[in-house]
């Protein structure tokens, strides 16, 4: 699986002497396999660096990855895992005994590898292990979660729980590629319950709640979306307007009733971006 050319990316990004270090490590790990990788991996952030790769959407087969979220050491780790021929057992072992940086590198590599039993096992770890950098490394900026759906041990309920965790941590939905396609009423119920719990505690609600629940309405969804149009937070109002647009694009039975609220809000909405979303919804 060759989602992007790591060597070309690193050659373009790194000073020549650091790229040489990478090549030396690559040679060592190619010769020494996983045992050599155990030694090489911890030092990658220090030896190769933490610079971000340029933003670029890498597409290969069914994989999509935003390389802008990757650091030089992440790319180097992906290459070393490849040349070490690290399989599922090695991945899990490297994760289990890795420090914070090592774990993040192993998790980020999953986005560019075929989905396997090891992927599913590490996604289960991430469901519990939510150091935000680990959660982001595994779940964000690629379509790994959506791509893993349907594999043994990773059913819709597992995807739903990861999305709920994203909401709990405040991770933006836009970073979970293709997840919106898997919205479902049970996930909407979970997100709405979380929102209600947060509101009762006087705490912030995940702004993207409206964007997801609108795609699979359940009891209370419409009231929450319409109520969002009057929220004092711009981001929440925008999400509500976009949610209603998404809902009306697929479900027109309540068009008349919803258009009443959209029309009523439009002249009072101070934000141009939100007015545009309201107008799009009214055009449905």
């Amino acid at each position: 699986m060759n989602v992007f050319d790591v060597q070309a990316s690193l050659r373009a990004l790194l000073p020549a002497e650091r790229f040489l270090v990478f090549e030396e490590l690559r040679t060592q790990v190619a010769a020494g396999g996983v045992r050599a990788l155990q030694i090489a991996l911890p030092a990658l952030p220090r030896k190769i660096g933490r610079e971000q790769l340029p933003p670029e959407l890498a597409l290969e087969g069914d994989v999509s990855v935003d390389l802008g979220a990757w650091r030089a050491c992440d790319a180097a780790a992906l290459e070393l895992l490849h040349v070490a021929q690290a399989g599922d057992d090695a991945l899990r072992e490297l994760y289990a005994h890795g420090d914070i940086e090592e774990r993040a590198m192993v998790l980020r590599s999953l986005a560019c590898r075929p989905v396997s039993a090891g992927t599913v096992a590490l996604l289960a770890e991430v469901q519990r292990t939510n150091v935000q950098s680990h959660f982001e490394a595994a779940i964000c900026d690629s379509n790994l979660v959506a791509r893993s759906l349907g594999r043994a041990g990773f059913a819709q309920a597992d995807l739903d729980r990861l999305v709920l965790k994203a909401a709990f941590l405040g991770v933006e939905l836009v970073r979970l590629f293709d997840v919106q396609r898997h919205a479902n009423p049970e996930l909407s119920r979970m997100l709405q319950d979380l929102a209600t719990e947060r509101e009762a505690a006087g705490r912030a609600v995940w702004r993207d709640t409206a964007r997801l629940i609108a795609r699979a309405p359940t009891a209370g969804t419409l009231a929450r979306l319409v109520g969002g149009l009057e929220h004092g937070d711009d981001g929440t109002r925008l999400a509500a307007a976009e949610g209603l647009d998404a809902l009306l694009s697929r479900e027109r039975s309540q068009r008349t009733e919803l258009h009443h609220y959209l029309r009523e809000r439009l002249p009072r909405e101070p934000r141009a971006e939100i007015r545009a979303a309201l107008e799009r919804a009214l055009a449905r």
């Binding site: 519990r128 292990t129 939510n130 150091v131 935000q132 941590l169 405040g170």
Partner: peptide, 22 residues
């Protein structure tokens, strides 16, 4: 050779929203 003194110039990551293993 492993202590990056330059990184000590700044406090470590202080985002306490993060959790570890739940």
């Amino acid at each position: 050779g492993r202590l990056d003194v330059a990184r000590l110039e700044h406090p470590a990551n202080i985002d306490r929203r993060q959790t570890f293993e739940g």
